[in-house]
Nucleic acid binder design. Sequence first.
DNA 1: ACCATAAGTTCTATTTTAGAACTGTCAATA
DNA 2: TATTGACAGTTCTAAAATAGAACTTATGGT
Lengths: 164, 164
Amino acid sequence: MKWDALEEEPCSVARTVAVIGDRWSLLILRECFLRIRRFDEFQASLGITRHLLADRLKKLVRFGVLRKIPYQEAPKRYEYILTQKGLDLYPIIMSIVHWGNIHMVDSRGRPMLHEHKNCKKMFDPVMVCSECGEPLSAKAVHVHLGPGARQSSPVHAKAQARAK
Amino acid sequence: MKWDALEEEPCSVARTVAVIGDRWSLLILRECFLRIRRFDEFQASLGITRHLLADRLKKLVRFGVLRKIPYQEAPKRYEYILTQKGLDLYPIIMSIVHWGNIHMVDSRGRPMLHEHKNCKKMFDPVMVCSECGEPLSAKAVHVHLGPGARQSSPVHAKAQARAK
DNA sequence: ACCATAAGTTCTATTTTAGAACTGTCAATA
DNA sequence: TATTGACAGTTCTAAAATAGAACTTATGGT
């Protein structure tokens, strides 16, 4: 499957994966949320090759996740900053961080801690239901085809039947 | 940078990306949450090459995200099911789905809808603070070095200073 | 004996990535 | 004036990963 085909899939996971579903894009976005903005800063902090960095930044700009803002003329240079679409990726990054904190730490503990400015406490992110506010688990969720679905595939129908 | 090096990084994003940070792993996990369990089911629903599927399943088992459960003897065959560690990836998948729902849908609308069995309503996932329950935004969070950190890099220190 | 099912493995061709060197523009310095 | 350094890329070759198809192995059914 080509990357372009992913964007066209009738699935929000596939379409999002088309944007952020490679090793470097996620790490670049991590740096964005840590206030990194310039080409050489990304390169220094990530150890990514300059070639790939240029490519990925271009991709993220194309998808509207980052925006190039000029910060000096002559020679014209740009900073890469998150758009609203990019800022909206925060829950993805935070849930990734949290899973790593729970399942991938060594004996020394977490590499980073997060303080909520509202309540001044160190916190973990929790995913809840927008309607009732209860924490979500996979087992408490039922999936329905939406208006943008293609149709239920036989293999999924079989799997759904098995789940009942 | 090699994939092995990612696992060793003092960063929960990098370590998680080492597990799920490629196109196919995330799509395989999507299928797992849709109750897909067998090799040929994965292959049929994803269109992944058999070679890569075998490789990725092996990787996910190695990381403890999936477990092989025998479902018949002679010839011995296995189903791949999510461990608790794998089930804990649900917030990541859901936040990816949600971002796609908001930013990557076409005019036909969402491919899938999610119903919360607790409250019987269609919902969106919301990420909140574990301490005060308020929804989280990147700007309301302050990052601190934790016990497992290496040390603040000069480039990050500069970026942090700029943010103040 | 022949076909089908399931879960892989093997093969070659293509694409992607790594790693290093190179380019162009300008400012500051010797 | 010539040199150096900062910055943001681009270009090059070699290595690694992926795509796509065919093949293998074990078994059960007709």
